[in-house]
Design a protein around this nucleic acid. Structure first.
Lengths: 176, 176
DNA sequence: AAATATGTTTAGGATATTTTAAACGTTATA
DNA sequence: TATAACGTTTAAAATATCCTAAACATATTT
């Protein structure tokens, strides 16, 4: 009860992180875990985090791996302990870039796979003797080629996010 | 059965869109609807879309409004009909920018609100006579100020997305 | 004014996701 | 070698989300 208002303050922010992460399709707990680590004075173990949030160790285990995947948190080694300790990446530009980059990458994967598969099916149809079928196939092929072109642009974007963080930051944030 | 393979081709892509939209926290149907409209030769009405996807009119109504919010689809006027017709925005750069922009905007709203609320609570505590409480409050205040600074950067990002699409495209896509 | 055609809301059931406790595997320590 | 301290997996329950049919609201015909 001593630090009631402090924990209240943190709770506000932790909730906000939960809702923010949910915007990117992640479970709210990922945001909550990130929030706890954001405020933590030192790296925390799984059970510490579970305790602060009153969730199970399993939930933390599952969701912290998601956060690691997005490079929102780092596992740090604590000498003399065999626990896994984690600390938050507090630079939001990095967090933001990583989340976006990951999503675009997945998006590109999903869609180019679908395009390739579809292109194959269409290849046989564009010369079909059935005129109606043939013309429909050609129209769709046009759509797919357009899509393919756009996704090439996307892939460049991933590359830029992947290698040009500093450039990106400079472009969007000359101020500081 | 005539155009079986054509619809198969489209189904692939439509599914891929569904999974892609889900990456951004949207229901998969939003992607499916977008997919149907992406391939459509003319603007389609709610029932047309519902028919193609075998979902209810209500689902289309709800989800197409989400798509409108993200500017992924546009309502178009069809002379002589009182139906609402929709067409897809086929320029992915626009779709991408709009989705990201929207998310960042919401994120900024959620978090700045939480920060403001928390700052208020802390203001009273940083001068508390209780030394432990006071110091904890000061540490947290430091965290909040850091957050605030980062979110100012975010807000600039929204502005850029909102007004500088061409600039953005030029930066990331000099090629075409 | 009645009937029709449309889009929206809503309450419920259907489905998918998330969380948990318990079992498990592994490594370190006694 | 046995025990303890971990993190992970799993199957089931709890929860949240999504979808639908039906009711509703509004505008347009007849």
């Amino acid at each position: 009860m001593e630090y009631y208002e402090i924990t209240e303050v943190r709770k506000n922010i932790i909730e906000a992180f939960g809702r923010s992460f949910a915007l990117y399709g992640l479970p709210a707990v990922t945001g909550h875990i990130y929030g706890v680590l954001y405020f933590a004075a030192q790296p925390l173990g799984l059970e510490d985090i579970a305790g602060e949030l009153a969730v199970s160790k399993a939930t933390v285990s599952i969701n912290i791996r998601i956060l690691e995947g997005f490079k929102c948190v780092r596992k740090v080694w604590q000498k003399g302990s065999r626990r896994d300790y984690y600390e938050a990446e507090r630079d939001f530009t990095k967090v933001f870039i990583e989340v976006i980059r990951n999503n675009i990458k997945k998006e590109v994967e999903i869609t180019t796979e679908a395009i390739d598969k579809s292109m194959e099916s269409l290849a046989g149809l564009v010369n079909s003797p059935d005129k109606g079928l043939r013309e429909k196939a050609r129209v769709d092929l046009g759509h797919l080629k357009h899509l393919e072109k756009q996704y090439k642009w996307y892939r460049r974007l991933v590359d830029m996010f992947g290698t040009g963080e500093k450039l990106w930051r400079k472009i969007t944030c000359d101020g500081d």
